[in-house]
């Protein structure tokens, strides 16, 4: 193969390359790509904002659990609508989340075993939310529980409290 046959075509931009200086084409290429990048980033941000709903129609997180006298001493009561266990011991009341800390399945109170059990991946908890066995990474959280002025129990599911806090009535 002779020298002449070898491909000698060079990209046009490089042909006028004069050491260090960038050519007009390279300059506009870079400007155009940068502009595209900025536009893409802007579009992505706007789309991301669009995809995050500002108003949600989700159930309220605070609820009244009724009069304390409804709950016998040493009992675990499941509030179906709210996915919360109201536990009354000799010391007082506390509220335990019924949503498994593993993957969000709803646990069930098994009185015969004195356990809270998760149907999805087999986690088991005591009535105070501490884990007995299974893949759950954390104990079930305790929610803030207070008394309303008219004497009802009020549970706030947004506020978690330390498990040793109980509401004395």
């Amino acid at each position: 193969m002779s020298e002449a046959d070898k491909p000698t075509v060079k990209p046009e931009g490089e042909a006028k390359d004069s050491g260090g200086e960038i050519s007009r084409r390279d300059f506009f290429n870079e400007v155009a790509i940068a502009a595209l990048g900025v536009a893409g980033l802007g579009a992505a941000t706007v789309t991301y904002r669009y995809l995050s709903p500002n108003v949600l129609f989700e159930p309220p997180t605070t609820f009244r659990a009724g009069n304390p006298d409804l709950y016998p001493v040493n009992s675990v009561t499941y509030i179906t609508d709210q996915q919360v266990y109201i536990v009354r011991t000799g010391a007082g009341f506390y509220a335990v989340s019924a949503i498994c800390t593993h993957l969000g399945c709803i646990t069930q109170w098994k009185p015969e075993a004195n356990q809270i059990q998760c149907p999805c991946h087999g986690s088991k908890f005591r009535e105070d939310g501490t884990k007995i066995e299974g893949p759950a990474p954390r104990p079930l959280p305790h929610f803030s529980i207070t008394l309303t002025p008219d004497g009802d129990l009020l549970v706030d599911k947004l506020e978690t409290i330390k498990p040793d806090k109980v509401l004395k009535v």
Partner: peptide
């Protein structure tokens, strides 16, 4: 949150 369009699996 983005995938579900909310905190729960719902209408969104």
């Amino acid at each position: 949150f983005q995938l579900l369009g909310g905190n729960l699996v719902g209408e969104n």
